[in-house]
Nucleic acid binder design. Structure first.
Lengths: 180, 180
DNA sequence: CGTTCCATGTAAGGCGTTACATGATTAC
DNA sequence: GTAATCATGTAACGCCTTACATGGAACG
C-alpha cells in the first residue's frame, strides 16, 4: 500500500523521503501515515524495481535525494489505482484511492464508487441484521459500538453518493457530455 | 490488542479458539477481526503467562480446548481497559474498549469518553485548518477525502456525547445518584 | 462417499513500528 | 554553543495474514 501511495505523490512532482513524510502528515495522516522506517526502505525497493529514480541534490546547503517517478512507475500506479482494492472493514482504506482519483477516467471513478457503495451496503445490511438479534443480549456499550458501525457505513454511502453526483457535474462541465 | 480482546470475551464465559473467531465475526468484525493464525498462538501465549487455563473437552463428539480466564487474566484485562489507549487516526480503535465498558465504573467511563472527545476534537480542528489552506490547491477528490475526515470526526464526537448522556441516565437509574 | 463444517495448529512471510545511529544546518 | 529542525538510513522486533497440514463429524 505504502509503495503505491508514494508513487501517487510522485505523480505530481519529485520528492525526497523527508518530503513524503511531511506531505503525508499534512494531507493523508487522518487515514494513512507512515514512518521514516518504512518510507526509506520502500523508496529503495521502488528504485531497485525501476519505478523511481533518485537524484542526489544539494538544496539550500542540505543534502537531499529527490525521487522521480519513471514510466514503469506510472504504469504500476495506474494498474493499482484502476484495479480492485479489497474493501476493509477495520480501516478506512477506501479513502486512499479516492485521494488519487484525478488519475482515473470519469467512467472508472463511477465504477469504483458504485462498487464501494454496494460493498458498504452489504456490510450495513449485516450490521442491521446484527442489531435485531443483538438488541436483547447486548448491553448499552456493545449496542453503542454497533450504532457507531451503522452510522459509519451510512456516512460512507452518503459520501460516495455525493461524490458521484459532484463528479458527474464536474465531468459534464469539463467535457460537455457528462463523460459519455 | 488481540490478547486483550480475547481476555475481554473470556470475562463472560469459556470459549475455544474457534468460538472466539465466530464471536468476533458476529460482533466486532466491523472494527476488529483476527484470523486463526493469530488467535491460536495468542491463546497459547496467554496460557503460558497464566492469564487463561485450557480444558480439553469433547462436546458433541468434537474435540475442543475451552479456555477459562484466571484471576491474573482478569487483572491484566482490567489494567488494559482502565489504562490509556493510544488514539489512532487510521483505525477506529476507540470502539474496542467501548465494547467492554461494562467492566469499568461510571466514573472511569466518563473520563475515557471525555478524553476521546477532546482527542477527536483536536484532530477535527487540524482537519478544519487543513480545509482552509487546501481549498485552492486540492482537487475535488482530495477535498472530498478531507470532507470525509471532517464528517468522520464529527460522528465520533457526537457518538461519544450521546453515549456519555445515555450512560449518565443509566447510572442514575441503577444507582439512584448518577454515579456521584 | 464426497463435500461441507468443525476444530486445532504451524511456517513463512508481509508490512509496519520504535529505537537507534549519524551528521549537517539554522535559530536563538 | 546548544537546541531544534532537516535529512537519511539500519536493526530488531511486533503483530498480523495467508497458506498449508491434519483430522473428525455431519449432511445429502
Amino acid at each position: 500500500m505504502l509503495e503505491y501511495i508514494i508513487l501517487g505523490f510522485l505523480m505530481d512532482r519529485e520528492l525526497s523521503g523527508y518530503d513524503l513524510k511531511q506531505t503525508m502528515a499534512s494531507s493523508t495522516s487522518y487515514f494513512f501515515d507512515a514512518s521514516f522506517g518504512s518510507i526509506y526502505p520502500a523508496l529503495k525497493k521502488l528504485e531497485t524495481r525501476g519505478d523511481v529514480r533518485a537524484t542526489e541534490v544539494v538544496d539550500g546547503g542540505k543534502f537531499k535525494k529527490l525521487y522521480a517517478i519513471q514510466a514503469t512507475g506510472r504504469e504500476t500506479f495506474r494498474a493499482w489505482l484502476a484495479g480492485p482494492i479489497p474493501f476493509s472493514r477495520t480501516k478506512p482504506d477506501h479513502l486512499i484511492p479516492v485521494f488519487f482519483y484525478r488519475f482515473l477516467s470519469p467512467e472508472e471513478r463511477k465504477e469504483r464508487l458504485e462498487k464501494l457503495i454496494s460493498e458498504a451496503q452489504a456490510v450495513l445490511g449485516e450490521l442491521a441484521a446484527q442489531e435485531e438479534d443483538v438488541a436483547c443480549k447486548a448491553d448499552l456499550y456493545q449496542h453503542s459500538a454497533l450504532a457507531f458501525g451503522l452510522q459509519y457505513y451510512r456516512l460512507v454511502i452518503d459520501w460516495c453518493r455525493r461524490l458521484l453526483q459532484e463528479d458527474a457535474v464536474t465531468s459534464y462541465i469539463e467535457t460537455g457530455d457528462g463523460g459519455q
